[in-house]
């Protein structure tokens, strides 16, 4: 028990530092990169003095560390700031059109924007991941156990084929085949649950090859461990050894590659897929925010994303050390 407590104490404090560092990196990057958000907020016709005044009011002319500390102070109070662009009513107000109403109070709080977009992203992530699991777990296990037979080849060829397809291409082709040409499924935007099917397939197509590979490698490695065959000589069935022991051992490297690689892929995939399908999740919100130089939104999403990554990695490592007691952390 002491072990678990120390683990969480240490990892959460480390994680907090990491999130802080990520926040600072993104915060600084945004402010040193070219592209002035004021120009977008006020539109091309704004006078230099009006722009300067707005910039002053938003605090964008202070030194970056000062801005960052102020930002952190607000976050501690639970205030992630307001969008530069988006109005309270939702939807893109298109900043340049209403130059007059640029007071930050009229803008939507970032936290609300995210709260509105998050469920969509979660839905897409969950269905995509589930779909990928449905395909890759059976196929990966089969390929891992029959290390030299046809399942291994099928898994290898399938995954090499799909791994070399950009998700944007897969997305477009699926839209064309399943939606534009046949009209079977809806594709662009979101009105009901049906809109999640094609995007989820695209997310799954990106994840599945990597998952199949990781699973088959992890299973194959453990099937070659002496305990698998010796277990059968000891009187246990091959089935029991596979499901009770091999999979348990294979879970450790799998969890690791999930934490290190797949979760990043999933996140990146979500962003792109939401963009392709105009799916109203966090990804679309962020990409639009970047093009509009909407700093508060980008910062908050980056903090959220890295917090999620940090927490998933803590969970993954804790699960690994619980499964395999030899592991240190």
């Amino acid at each position: 028990m002491a072990f678990a407590l120390e683990f969480f104490l240490r990892r959460i404090s480390q994680g907090a530092l990491i999130v802080l560092a990520v926040a600072f990196v993104i915060f600084t990057l945004l402010r040193i990169a070219p592209g002035d958000p004021i120009r977008i907020i006020l539109g091309p016709m704004a006078t230099p003095s009006a722009m300067e005044e707005t910039a002053q009011r938003l605090g964008l002319r202070d030194p970056i560390p000062v801005q960052f500390v102020r930002y952190l102070g607000d976050i501690v109070k639970g205030d992630f700031g307001n969008s530069f662009i988006r109005g309270k009513q939702g939807g893109t107000t298109g900043g340049s059109q209403d130059a007059g109403g640029s007071a930050p109070v009229d803008r939507a709080p970032v936290i609300e924007l995210i709260a509105k977009a998050l469920p969509y992203t979660l839905l897409l992530a969950a269905s995509g991941f589930l779909l990928a699991c449905l395909v890759s777990i059976p196929l990966g296990i089969l390929a891992g156990v029959r290390n030299h037979g046809w399942p291994q080849r099928v898994a290898l060829y399938l995954s090499s084929f799909f791994v070399s397809l950009p998700n944007v291409w897969v997305g477009i082709v699926l839209i064309y085949l399943l939606s534009a040409r046949t009209g079977w499924l809806p594709a662009i935007g979101y009105q009901h649950i049906g809109y999640v099917i094609i995007p989820a397939i695209v997310v799954a197509v990106e994840l599945a090859p990597v998952m199949i590979r990781s699973i088959s490698v992890a299973v194959a490695t453990n099937v070659q461990e002496p305990f698998y065959e010796i277990g059968q000589v000891r009187g246990l069935s091959a089935r029991a050894m596979l499901f009770r022991h091999v999979l348990r051992n294979a879970a450790v490297p799998l969890l690791n590659s999930f934490g290190a690689q797949m979760i990043g892929m999933l996140l990146g995939g979500l962003f792109v897929v939401e963009y392709i399908f105009s799916f109203p999740g966090i990804g679309l919100l962020t990409i639009n925010a970047v093009f509009q130089r909407d700093f508060p939104v980008i910062q908050t999403v980056a903090i959220f994303a890295s917090t999620v990554l940090v927490f998933i990695n803590i969970a993954v490592d804790f699960a690994s050390t619980t499964i395999d007691r030899r592991l240190k952390f």
């Binding site: 461990e225 002496p226 305990f227 010796i230 277990g231 059968q232 000589v233 000891r234 009187g235 246990l236 069935s237 009770r244 022991h245 348990r248 051992n249 450790v252 499964i323 395999d324 007691r325 030899r326």
Partner: peptide
Amino acid sequence: MACLRGREIAYIGANPTTALDPTV
């Protein structure tokens, strides 16, 4: 054969440290 293995005929190998699942 499965009915005999581990019941009537048992086997112990040279390397006991790898004979069991390390995580159980």
